[in-house]
């Protein structure tokens, strides 16, 4: 599969989707003008990946900030991961960022994928 490697900007997150290296990461800030358009290639990639997934997929979310439009799309990403056998999420949050911790907990209650929480 082709790999996706997007550098983070001030309003879009860094994204790494690399099947052969086993790296799956969304990190940084997400407040794009058009969240649906920005996340569509990610959703397409994950749909394809689900049919040929590695035996385990550890997906890292290390977000500093995301807006509400992005939160809807992050839920879509997580929903795609429900279809990936052996997928699990590591949700990182800054140790004093209760809102990001709570956001992760809420997502974990909305989808059927194992979550692990880690502070940084």
């Amino acid at each position: 599969m082709e790999l996706i490697h997007l550098k983070g900007t001030e309003d879009t997150p860094k994204i790494v989707l690399d099947k052969s290296a086993g790296l799956f990461e969304i990190s940084g800030r997400s407040l794009p003008e058009d969240a649906a358009e920005f996340y569509q290639p990610i959703l397409d990639w994950l749909e394809k990946y689900a049919t040929q997934a590695n035996s385990s997929t550890n997906f890292h979310f290390k977000l500093e900030y995301f807006n509400t439009a992005s939160s809807k799309l992050i839920l879509d990403v997580l929903s795609k991961l429900e279809a990936v056998p052996g997928a699990n999420i590591t949700w990182y949050y800054h140790e004093d960022d209760e809102d990001m911790e709570e956001a992760g907990e809420e997502f974990s209650e909305l989808v059927d994928v194992p979550f692990e929480f880690q502070t940084y």
Binding site: A35, A69, K72, E106
Partner: peptide
């Protein structure tokens, strides 16, 4: 918190790209 979860789960993005979550957030 409940309203947020309900809207994020059942709502869809508007044609303007909003999630209907801004005021709640």
């Amino acid at each position: 918190k409940e309203l947020y979860k309900e809207v994020i789960k059942n709502g869809s993005l508007s044609e303007k790209g909003g999630a209907g979550l801004g005021f709640i957030d």
